[in-house]
Design a protein around this nucleic acid. Structure first.
Lengths: 194, 194
DNA sequence: GTTGCAACCGGAGACAGCCTCCGGTTATCT
DNA sequence: AGATAACCGGAGGCTGTCTCCGGTTGCAAC
């Protein structure tokens, strides 16, 4: 939709700016994977070979950086809903998606703090991602309700909250096994009462 | 078992030390309730009317302070298992205990970070509390398995992890309702497969 | 190819919070 | 009353956050 200043095209971003931004994201992902969401931003800037001011111009807050780092992965996770919905019966699709979610957490493709704002943070940063993830689980749950595999009153958001919750609990060698068992319990517990 | 220096009785702790310690715990609980586990320790010391050195002598780490603040509540929560076990059928006892857990979180009698180390933190600080909480849920689950109300292979720890997990997810006006629904799903999902 | 200039850079410095150190105080015991 | 060890507290060193502003440079226009 046309807006003001339509005749003044914005200048193409500079290549050094794009390069620095990509570099920061790459280094930040490594740092967050290794040290968690509280990794030092100054250290990340140094490791990326940029000044702190540069990092802050690209990402004004830690949350902005985290969102940018994990946006692609969150989008991939959301998009996987369609794949599962096409190929699997409703409850199996839901289960497969939840297990993929667990897998993403286990392999640190997404970390817990990146998920926090999906479930209630005030930040507008995650609106895109939030909509996608919530849309994904909404679709999966609605389809399973429709096929009467899941009770009618189930709130998709409750399942999402549970998944995000376990991503925060201290990791251990058997975290993934435990999380997978939880998915099983959640699926079983979501079935209609006979 | 007698050890060295048996004949030298330890000196009674000074009253000003006890008073300061109590004061710090009281102020810290208010601060953690209001601002979360990352409330400034310097601010807590100031509000308690003690020096930072005093706070650090009583509680060498933030985790030590958190554990001391919430120890009583965690012990109360653990102890409630006996009350429920005496009065309620197995599954109802488990459900009631889990709902009490949710209530403690909702009313901030316990906060999420105080629970973290219960499920895998390396710290020895929480060993007492950890044992009690894990003992409580172990007892509840074993009793329900024995009465065949719950499947044999259920790991009590998985349920505990789920509960602690949702305590970390961003609070909202309907958090408690959502968490209670989750308890319902977990209980239902833990039933034996027919 | 040159010039203008705005988008970019980076790092020093102010600030907050953490945590230790050590000189001084005081509560307890004899 | 005196000795003394347990206690106090706050300044200072340190780390990390984050802004500011002088300098640089990539891009567009000519």
């Amino acid at each position: 939709m046309p807006t003001k200043d339509q005749k003044i095209a914005p200048r193409k971003p500079r290549t050094d700016a794009q390069r620095n931004r990509e570099r920061i994201l790459e280094v930040a992902k490594e740092a967050f994977t290794r040290s968690g969401a509280n990794a030092s931003l100054d250290d990340i800037a140094k490791a990326a070979g940029v000044g702190a001011g540069t990092l802050y111009r690209h990402f004004p807050t830690r949350d902005a950086l985290i969102e940018a780092v994990y946006r692609t992965e969150v989008e991939k996770l959301a998009a996987a809903e369609k794949k599962f919905s096409e190929r699997l019966p409703p409850v199996e699709a839901l289960r497969a998606w939840m297990l993929l979610f667990v897998d993403y957490i286990a392999t640190k493709q997404i970390i817990g703090p990146a998920l926090n704002s999906l479930v209630g943070g005030p930040s507008k940063l995650y609106e895109g991602s939030r909509g996608q993830i919530q849309g994904a689980i909404d679709s999966l749950v609605k389809r399973a309700i429709k096929s009467r595999d899941i009770r009618k009153d189930l709130e998709p958001f409750d399942l999402l909250r549970a998944l995000i919750g376990v991503s925060h609990v201290a990791s251990g060698p058997d975290w993934q096994q435990s999380a997978r068992r939880l998915v099983d319990i959640l699926i079983t517990g979501s079935r209609p009462v006979k």
